[in-house]
């Protein structure tokens, strides 16, 4: 992911309609923004079968990372709790509680682990 798209991820619009994920050259409409609860996630299915975990934080920003928990192999990251540490939002895996930075996908409890980050926008 490039710096530009990451900045975009962080600054997505606040109250508008549809949440979209970058899929190839297109933006895939995922769901109505109102379906997201601040501080919680949902899972979305990409056409190629990949699973994405989508989150909304308290400030209204959306984030998208891979739904697969690399520590257990289960597709559950969307079901974790969202928190923030020094302004950095993260999700804690519901299985064994490792935390992942939502903006970068980096695992905060293990330097060597990262999950993929997806481009997302809400407009």
């Amino acid at each position: 992911m490039t710096a530009r798209t990451m900045a975009e991820t962080m600054e997505t619009a606040q109250d508008t309609g549809v949440v979209r994920l970058a899929a190839g050259d297109d933006w895939l409409a995922v769901c109505d923004r109102s379906l997201l609860t601040p501080g919680r996630g949902v899972a979305a299915l990409l056409p190629d079968g990949r699973q994405v975990a989508l989150f909304l934080d308290r400030a209204g920003r959306t984030y998208a990372i891979d739904n697969r928990d690399p520590f257990t192999g289960a597709y559950v990251l969307s079901r974790g709790l969202v928190g923030s540490d020094g302004g950095q939002p993260f999700v804690a895996s519901p299985l064994l509680k490792q935390r992942f930075d939502l903006a970068t996908g980096a695992c905060l409890d293990d330097d060597e682990v990262t999950v993929a980050v997806f481009e997302v926008r809400a407009d």
Partner: peptide, 10 residues
């Protein structure tokens, strides 16, 4: 103003 964490939320 932040999002809290997985300890204090539950």
């Amino acid at each position: 103003g932040g999002d809290g964490c997985e300890v204090c939320k539950p």
